[in-house]
Design a protein around this nucleic acid. Structure first.
Length: 485
RNA sequence: GGCGCGUUCGUCUAGUGGCUUAGGACGCCGCCCUCUCAAGGCGGAGAUCACGGGUUCGAAUCCCGUACGCGCUACCA
């Protein structure tokens, strides 16, 4: 197996959306597989019928794909080991559960939920750990057969021998030891015929030839059950890697209560998939150097399980924001264009028609001033419509009594230029300033205000160039009327 | 309660016994650049490496204990 290509899986239960913690787990699986030229498999752990959520699988796959995590095998891409929905594999689990029974490693149990509840109550009252008392093991073969024949509801439980050590070897945490005294006789097959996670994941991982089980830390405690299962079934144990948790700012497990946890939330907020993936990759892993900006390919090339941290990481949105800006800046205007158009279609300007040429200029002028694509609109609405308000503070600071006259001079020079090139605007402005005997700034600030209503933005000549001669003249004239102190 | 995992600036982290007066990044503050705002450059504040014992000539790094946090302890995953 050492020389085989890894086969890893992301095995979420379809609870409705892709959690960012799930994204990180999926990502590490994906990166590991791709780094070694292996396969990334998506398997849906839908063995809890009470938790069925309509459309959850589609949503999950949608989010995964948006992030660029294409799976090699999974629902809708059925490969050699299909089906990849556990609810469609029920008979398989039952078969292996029966094999375990025949080996004495599992057994039928017919306890009522009532008895179990009472048992647990008594145990906790005595401050013992709650654990099944193996009562069903006292049943004779005949009694079992009769109950089965009578159609009594049953469950199949793992038969754990107490007093033994189980070793879990984990790539990230090293060797972890458990005593079987604390391992419960886990239910393998529920009374509705569905397997529990423990049974299903072991059977499927084996059948699907999974080489590395990379999953969240919350599974570490139940791994001894899985190890036992592999041993009882005589199967090779995969490599385990239990990932640290993602945390809220108060260090509790990342939850919905304290902010957004779904990938789709971040998508809706306008984060780039590149930034989300980059950020999430760094939450618990680093290459050992100072590099923090990664594209997808670099992540694949550099990722290793050995360099995954042990401790949980707070999901710190501020750094995500910074990375989003970094990724925007690293893109060409042409790459940003479709994203920009998408935002425009969702904005109040959706009915306007702007040429690609115009939009590309806006991107070039604005991309290092924004963190979200939508700020291309929010931070510079003046590229889409004339201002109807003029920033009051800026007016007070920059609009002096002599400003209107000076702007009129500038206007006359602007009217003379025959192109909307930056150079023409620049020459005209310099000339005006010179003839007026004032500094450029005395014109630049008022004209910015007149033309954009704002005191901030791209370089003034870029701004004028993008707006164009006609529009600039028009806007200066309206400003002259409107800003009359 | 039991079992397990964890603990380096506010946050993400580097560090695997001497190179460390603990490095980088985000955020914050200041300066430079400059027509503004950003971006960029430079600099600053910010960590007695959870605490206490050991081991060692020497420990953030190894060992033990304690505290705290988190996870698991379901016919949920």
């Amino acid at each position: 197996m050492i020389n085989e290509k890894p086969r890893v899986r992301f095995a979420p239960s379809p609870t409705g959306y892709l959690h960012v913690g799930g994204l990180r787990t999926a990502l590490y699986n994906f990166l590991y597989a791709k780094h070694y030229g292996g396969k990334f498999i998506l398997r849906i752990e839908d063995t809890d019928r009470n938790r069925y959520v309509e459309g959850a699988v589609e949503n999950l796959i949608d989010s995964l794909k948006w992030c660029g995590l294409d799976f090699d095998e999974g629902p809708g891409k059925d490969g050699e080991y299909a089906p990849y929905m556990q609810s469609e594999r029920l008979n398989i689990y039952l078969k292996y559960a029966e094999e375990l029974i025949s080996k004495g490693k599992a057994y039928y149990a017919f306890d009522t939920p009532d008895r179990l509840a009472k048992l647990k109550e008594e145990q906790t009252a005595r401050k013992e750990q709650s654990k099944y008392d193996k009562l069903a093991l006292t049943l004779s073969q005949e009694e079992i057969k009769n109950k089965l024949d009578a159609g009594e509801p049953f469950v199949i439980r793992l038969n754990v021998t107490p007093g033994q050590r189980v070793i879990v070897d984990d790539v990230i945490r090293g060797r972890v030891e458990f005593n079987t005294d604390i391992v419960d006789d886990q239910i393998l097959i529920k009374s509705d015929g569905y397997p529990t996670y423990h049974m299903a994941n072991v059977v499927d991982d084996h059948l699907m030839k999974i080489t590395h089980v990379i999953r969240g830390e919350e599974w570490l405690s139940s791994t001894p059950k899985h190890v036992l299962l592999y041993e009882f079934l005589g199967w090779e144990i995969p490599v385990f890697a239990h990932l640290p948790l993602l945390l809220n700012p108060d260090k509790s497990k990342l939850s919905k209560r304290q902010g957004d946890v779904a990938v789709e939330d971040y998508r809706a907020k306008g984060y780039l998939k590149e930034a989300l993936v980059n950020f999430v990759a760094l939450l618990g892993w680093n290459a050992g150097d100072d590099k923090e900006f990664y594209n997808f390919e670099e992540l694949i090339n550099n990722f290793s399980l050995e360099r995954v941290n042990k401790s949980g990481a707070v999901f710190n949105v501020e750094k995500l924001d910074w990375l989003n800006g970094e990724h925007i800046r690293s893109k060409t205007a042409l790459e940003i264009l479709p994203l920009f158009k998408e935002e425009l279609d969702n904005s109040i300007y959706k009915d306007h028609n702007f040429s690609d040429e115009h939009l590309l200029k806006i991107i070039d002028a604005m991309k290092e001033r924004i963190i979200f694509i939508r700020e291309l609109i929010e931070k510079s609405p003046y590229f889409f419509e004339a201002p109807n308000l003029y920033e009051e503070k800026a007016v007070q600071k920059r609009w002096k009594p002599e400003t209107p006259d000076e702007l009129k001079k500038l206007l006359s020079e602007f009217e003379k230029i025959d192109s909307s090139s930056k150079e023409d605007f620049e020459n005209a402005l310099h000339k005006s300033a010179e003839e007026l005997g004032i500094g450029n700034g005395k014109l630049i600030h008022p004209v910015r205000l007149a033309v954009s209503g704002s005191s901030t933005g791209p370089g003034i000549f870029d701004l004028l160039h993008i707006l164009g001669k006609e529009e600039v003249i028009l806007r200066i004239k309206t400003a002259l009327e409107k800003i009359n102190n």
